[in-house]
Computed example of a mutant assay.
Amino acid sequence: MNKIVKYSLIGLLVLGALWAAAFFIKSNSKSSVTYETQKPFISNIEKKTVATGKVVPEDEIEIKPQISGIIDKIYLVEGDKVKAGDLIAVIKVVPNEQSLNQARGRVRNAEIALNNVKIEYNRNKALFDKGVISSQDFNNLQLQFDQAKQELSNAQSDYQIIRVGSAGGSSSANTNIRATVDGTILEIPVEEGDQVIQSNNFNDGTTIATIADLGKMIFEGKVDEGEVGKLQVGTPLKISLGAVEGTELDAKLRFIAPKGVEETGAVQFKIEGDVEVNDSIFIRAGYSANASMVLEKRDSVMVIPEALLQFDNKTDKPYVEVAVGSPEEQKFERKDVEIGISDGVNVEIISGITEEDQVKQWNQTEPIKKGEDEEDSEEDSEA
């Protein structure tokens, strides 16, 4: 009986040891990873850059008054289309008292001078008719009389302009603010009752309205100094508007700034491009936009996905691993490659491999077993 119990215990211990060993081997064993491969292929590749900016009218014209005063009436609103000569607003003149008084005094002096010359003229005309004075003396008096009349007319016109803003016979009063070009009114920054200042040599004057032709738009943006050297005037652009989804406008680069501006530690260069406006899309001035442009282009070259590349830790040179033997053997050989341009997805291969090589995919990972995943989740939740 004791021998039976003894052998039973020994048997249980052996079975337990075998079960523990099997469990240990199973839980610690790792399945081998099978790497997939890809062949290089022929494709066109483009290196692009994107410049951020906005779409604005090519020319914006600011309408300013030629006389100071107060806005009496505004006849148009922002967004209205105008022709050159259309009336936008009318200014009511508030004359300067000192200037008005001086103009009034000038008129009075001209009247006094004219009356004095007129008396002398009439007296000498009678003598001239009787042949008492010579023709030369009478002609001098005639000239003085005509000049006095002209001086009075000028003084009266100046007084009228200072008082009401225009002379009585003027065909275009300074108080009438009119459009100088065809286009659309973008902005009217004043309101009725606002005081405005005339434009002169010492002051830009108050802007009554801003007019632009929305049919002639340009893209204004900035590019980094590392890319500006690869741009050329005439390069095609593709303009994407932030406010109009799914629409691209064609444009052509027309200007590259010769001087850069430092912004947040990087030097940026201003660029401009002529935008081909589509009549089916209404583009408002100031829309934010992105301009995509091709810096370099290669046609029918050998490429691989950029994710297949690796870089040496010491030399920082690119390389790939190419399959050697059958796919089941999973043997790979390192090959250094020379690369060209990249579009962010594919990269040009200049030398190092051929179209027949099978290039190893580096993003292959071992799948996590469901049981192990659940155990790890339980451990994390308990922690």
Rank of each mutant, 00 (worst) to 15 (best):
Q38M: 06
K39V: 01
F24K: 04
S31M: 08
P40A: 09
F23D: 07
V33P: 02
I42Q: 12
E46C: 03
K26Y: 09
Y35T: 00
S31Q: 13
K48Y: 10
S31L: 09
I10K: 02
F23G: 02
A22Q: 15
G16A: 14
A51D: 03
I45H: 02
F23Y: 13
I25P: 00
L18F: 12
S32Q: 06
T52D: 12
T34C: 00
E46N: 12
W19E: 01
S31F: 01
K26P: 01
I25R: 00
S32A: 13
A21H: 11
T49P: 01
E46T: 12
V33I: 15
I25A: 06
A21T: 15
A17N: 03
K26L: 07
L9A: 10
I10T: 10
Y35L: 06
K26I: 05
F23Q: 05
N28V: 03
K48M: 12
I25D: 00
N44S: 10
S31E: 13
I45W: 01
K39F: 04
W19D: 02
I45G: 01
A22E: 14
K30I: 02
N44C: 03
I42K: 14
L12V: 14
L13Y: 11
A20C: 10
Y35S: 01
F24V: 12
I42N: 13
I42V: 15
G16R: 01
T34R: 04
I45N: 02
K26W: 04
S27I: 08
S31D: 14
L9V: 15
E36H: 06
G16F: 10
E46H: 08
F24S: 08
S32M: 09
